[in-house]
Amino acid sequence: MSISYTGIWPVAPTPFHEDGSLDEGGMKRVLDLMIDQGVDGICILANFSEQFLITDDERRTLTRLCLEHVAGRVPVIVTISHYATPIVVARAQEAKDLGAAIVMMMPPYHGALMKGTAEQTFEQFRQVGEVGIPIMLQDAPLSGVDLPVPLLVRMAREIEMLKLFKIECPQAAAKLRALIAAGGEAIEGPFDGEEAITLLADLDAGCTGTMTSAMIPDLIGPVVKDFLAGNRQAAFDGYARVLPAVNHENRQCGFRSAKAAMVEGGVIGSAFCRHPIAPLHPDTHGMLMELLRPLDPLVLRWGK
């Protein structure tokens, strides 16, 4: 599969039944919805998939289920982050063997005090690179690991399979601009994240793709395409239309928003999140629906 590192590559949520067990049928419906939303790729087992609340056995089940069900319709990114390098390497090999197009990983960290150094981070990514599958580096505040631009450029130049960089740190546009300027052709796929809350600035800085949630990629994707095609005003207008919903998701709901919208649209049966994640407050949920309905996104009508 020839892959263009551009467009919208959302994170698939992981649906659960009300008793907390995996909803495998719902997972397939989520993937089908996302493909119908016109996504360019799908990411699974990421933070917005609640990967920190999923067992190792469930990871294996979901990796196989998702890759078999998508069946090459779009490329799939499998998130493999872990503090232990041998575990990350094993996850990368499993993802490759099952047909993943890309793996995504944060630098090694475990809590607030166990963080990989620059050399430890480089070495973990180097070892994953030897598996022979393209890598997306996720630069997210959650890890707490400092990833300065010179380190990222060195990694891009010396680790052949490190091709994509998802930058979602504070002032992401400034870092994207500096990374692209310093790394040149070694930065094959500069992406942003964080539900596209800084999308226009990041596109202006040179990013070629975005990793949002699966809530409204059918409405955000055209913003990316318009901007990259030079249709700036169309991109501005499209983004202004969705920004209140994006802001509410980013600041109030997090990964619970996509599930709430999918329940509303009959995609999945439950918005359950495992403890200690609390359900959305009814008022927060209500405003989310108020903001989404005028946009008429596919998620609200796909399953009806």
Rank of each mutant, 00 (worst) to 15 (best):
V74P: 04
V74Q: 08
V74Y: 08
V76D: 10
V76H: 06
T79C: 15
S81T: 12
H82T: 06
H82N: 13
H82S: 15
T85M: 03
V88I: 08
V89K: 05
A92C: 08
Q93L: 04
E94L: 13
A95E: 00
A95N: 02
K96P: 08
K96V: 05
D97F: 05
G99Y: 01
G99K: 02
A100N: 10
I102A: 11
V103M: 06
M104I: 08
M104K: 03
M105W: 07
M106F: 00
G111R: 06
G111W: 00
K115D: 00
G116E: 01
A118L: 13
Q120S: 07
F122T: 08
E123N: 06
E123D: 01
Q124W: 12
F125E: 00
R126A: 07
E130C: 11
V131R: 01
I133T: 02
M136A: 13
M136S: 11
M136Y: 02
L137Y: 03
L137T: 11
Q138G: 15
D139P: 09
D139C: 12
P141A: 04
L142V: 15
S143N: 12
V145I: 04
L147P: 07
L147M: 14
P150L: 04
L151T: 01
L152T: 04
V153T: 01
V153Y: 01
R154W: 02
M155V: 05
A156D: 03
A156H: 02
E158I: 05
M161S: 13
L162Q: 07
F165D: 10
K166G: 07
I167D: 06
Q171N: 15
Q171W: 12
K175R: 09
R177F: 14
L179K: 07
I180E: 14
A181Q: 14
A181G: 12
A182S: 08
G183W: 06
G183D: 08
G184W: 02
E185D: 15
I187L: 09
I187F: 00
I187G: 05
I187E: 09
F191K: 14
F191V: 13
F191Q: 06
G193D: 12
G193P: 03
E194D: 15
E195P: 12
A196L: 13
A196K: 07
L199A: 01
L199F: 04
L199H: 08
L200I: 15
A201T: 11
L203M: 03
D204F: 06
C207E: 14
G209Q: 07
G209I: 12
G209D: 03
